[in-house]
């Protein structure tokens, strides 16, 4: 169900394949950090999570360009003033404070809801961001400043000029095992279904009593 029309304000590229697109926030568009909207085109729909505002009156999304995809090429080519139909905000992947240590795990643009949490004022979390190369560590400085621990997990080769935080190699499951001993955690997982499946297997066997919140991003 289409309920809002978003008008493009600006767009900038974060890497060769990923960009942030900003829209004018329409009146009555209320949402909780971590919620998403569906971009609608006929019977097709693609969901994107709001990043959280960097400026009043705007909405931002982090989008990976999928060549031949239904929506991302249109968003990548959009100009200021172009309009897109979206659903009302929805979703349950929102942050709930608890006595347990929050551990956030994202892969790729699955970082979006965590950026929204941080821009809503959440602090003290641990974050593990899985990417293929350091170029995919979007919002790194903003997230690292707000978190208790920020650890990249880089599956590809590390460039010689990499100067970021000490990364884990391999997949995020390997990073989780290496960096977080058994304990009482609230896990928030956002990314591909395969990543969530693999991490739930690890969490069920290694972190008894953990709470887990998941968002399959694509």
């Amino acid at each position: 169900m289409t309920e809002f029309t978003l008008e493009v304000a600006e767009r900038h590229w974060l890497s060769e394949e990923t960009f942030e697109i900003r829209f004018v926030r329409p009146p009555g568009f209320d949402y909780l950090p971590g919620q998403k909207v569906g971009f609608v085109d006929g019977a097709a729909r693609r969901d994107y999570t709001m990043l959280g505002p960097v400026a009043a009156g705007h909405l931002s999304f982090c989008v990976r360009l999928v060549p031949g995809g239904r929506f991302s090429p249109k968003l990548a080519a959009a100009r200021r003033g172009d309009r897109f139909a979206v659903t009302a905000p929805f979703g349950f992947f929102t942050f709930a404070p608890s006595p347990r240590q929050a551990v956030w795990v994202a892969t790729g643009t699955g970082i979006a809801p965590f950026v929204a949490f941080v821009r809503a004022g959440v602090r003290g979390f641990d974050l593990l961001h899985g990417v293929r190369s350091p170029r995919g560590l979007y919002y790194r400085e903003e997230l690292a400043r707000a978190g208790r621990r920020y650890r990249p997990c880089i599956s590809g080769p590390l460039p010689d000029d990499y100067d970021g935080p000490s990364p884990f190699g391999g997949r995020v499951g390997d990073g989780l095992r290496a960096g977080w001993p058994p304990g009482d955690y609230d896990f928030y997982l956002c990314g591909r279904g395969e990543m969530i499946r693999d991490l739930l297997a690890i969490i069920d066997s290694r972190y008894e009593g953990a709470h887990v919140h998941t968002e399959r991003f694509y």
């Binding site: 609230d186 919140h213 998941t214």
Partner: peptide, 17 residues
């Protein structure tokens, strides 16, 4: 199919396994 429930556990909306 997510295969996340293949080990007999599932997640509540509030996060508990």
């Amino acid at each position: 199919y997510t295969q996340t429930g293949d080990r007999g556990k599932t997640g509540l909306l509030s996060g508990e396994r």
